[in-house]
Nucleic acid binder design. Sequence first.
DNA 1: TCGGATGCAGCAACCGGTTGCAGGAAGTAT
DNA 2: ATACTTCCTGCAACCGGTTGCTGCATCCGA
Lengths: 323, 323
Amino acid sequence: MAVTIRDVAAASGVHVSTVSRAFSAPHLVNPETRTRVLAVAEDLGYRPNRAARALTTGRTQNIGLIVADIANPFFPPLIKAAQAQARLRDYHVFVADTDEDPQVEEDLIQTLSKQVDGVLLCSPRLTNRTIERLSKEVPFVVVNRRVKGMPTVLMDAGRGARLAVEHLIGLGHRRIALVTGPSGSWTSKEMQEAAAAMAEVDVVFLGPNPPTERGGLAAATDVIASGVTGVLAYNDLVAIGVIEGLVERGVSVPGHVSVIGVDDIVSGQLSRPKLTTIAMPTAAAGRIAVDMLLQSVDSGATTGVTMLETSLIVRESTGRAHT
Amino acid sequence: MAVTIRDVAAASGVHVSTVSRAFSAPHLVNPETRTRVLAVAEDLGYRPNRAARALTTGRTQNIGLIVADIANPFFPPLIKAAQAQARLRDYHVFVADTDEDPQVEEDLIQTLSKQVDGVLLCSPRLTNRTIERLSKEVPFVVVNRRVKGMPTVLMDAGRGARLAVEHLIGLGHRRIALVTGPSGSWTSKEMQEAAAAMAEVDVVFLGPNPPTERGGLAAATDVIASGVTGVLAYNDLVAIGVIEGLVERGVSVPGHVSVIGVDDIVSGQLSRPKLTTIAMPTAAAGRIAVDMLLQSVDSGATTGVTMLETSLIVRESTGRAHT
DNA sequence: TCGGATGCAGCAACCGGTTGCAGGAAGTAT
DNA sequence: ATACTTCCTGCAACCGGTTGCTGCATCCGA
């Protein structure tokens, strides 16, 4: 039913191998022949069958993109960028959601590994050991987590935390809280280390907390109890929750307490007060991760670690410390 | 390198066809033989090659999911649900983003059509003619748009609009505005018709507007000028924009004006005041659309139109009309 | 004029499964 | 004992491309 390479060959009076080469090895075929073949192919509406090509070449032209939770607003910009970049390179992307379950994550990698040329692993929940083991089956690029010897794209959360704390210091805050994320989170750890190293300021750590609005809401009482005037939250959702909790208890933001989030998700721009935040270059991360992955697929060369810069976006949730 | 069906055959002393049948036609092979083969396969870590299978069966076990904009918060829950449902049925899903460009959308369908068994088209921007033409190349299910003779999943925006208006009426509002969306939007049209048919209330139409926060922000001046006490917005982003615009101009929400959104995206739950909204069952839509698609792929039977119910979620952005 | 290089196209095996057909063994009815 | 099923397995062609090898022209330099 569908038009195959043999139809094209017959219609243009050449052998199938010539048609094949007209597409995938142009320099091996006479220019005249080639244009004729291409014209006929166009005419017949021929589209090469990727499954067939995959079978012989071993290359599917597909990549897998595995995230913990598609609906987490942190990921969609990354997915979007990765998909667009892949399309540019004539690759398609399978998107899969692990629902934060490491077992699902592993299964997904297993079943996907046979039908993709590589996998992008975003904020994986698996252990490093497991990731290293699985990396023997299919090339990986890991995003948002450091795994030894594996190509990685990171966003500089440590620097982000420093920027945030410096911003607070500049506003006169001398005692601040870091509302941390899940215990296994690389980002959270980076932020803690960076914050702890800052002079001129006392920092208390509140956590671990689930990386959600509820998590922030629950942490608000601790924030009040700790007597800080500034808060850096694990991410924007947590920050919004903290603000909500503070306001509920009569603590105004940024009047009494300043709050900074991380990620720069849209919700932060839309909530009241508009959230001061550390912007994560998620779109760039998606793009670059795809490039790194395809590079390692094409050339076999295993690339290194890319660290992307973060930046502070000052909006309305931070202000001068009251003295 | 990878273990193939022939390796399994050799290792278990049977012919490849028996191994093949052990997997895909169990009733045709002796139970003993089958268990032995499966054991050997398990042992060797055999995974069937989907590209090879696709080549002979013509079925890829993949589906395509095409949305206008992955980063639009309306879509991720739908994508997530669709992906999970597909996985349940042992299908994988390609997610693709058209960037709101009809041409990209068409290209995407073309290139995808050869490597998927069906395509989910969400809020397509293509003309009905084009969709009908393309539907000859690959089975479709259309979400959020009515296309004649095509399996479709719709969310009852008309009923949602009625619920919203009734809610406003119940709160004493007698003159309301409908801040409409893009001119081509099916949802927007449904809402307009439903609202226009309501008695007991004057409704003015403000639009069309881009379906974004900016769109709502810009519409706020018209809202004020129109002298209404209640607003139903095309979606939550627009509603948030309207609220922002109103508040900037000293009109309090819900004190002076009540505002209702549509979609129930997270941002609406996090913004201040929390948004009263019409919840769209996007996750259900994704799940059901996948089921309909796979059904029409499996049985060839082309299913009909599914209409999903919407519901009103009352939060803080609506209140009694001031008299 | 001849040997050798070069360019182009055809041949056929192959990738890893699936499936219609054939055939042997065992079971059943006659 | 014979004929006919039924059950299971093997054989081999096939899906739609790719690619190493061969072979034929043509062109080149000597």
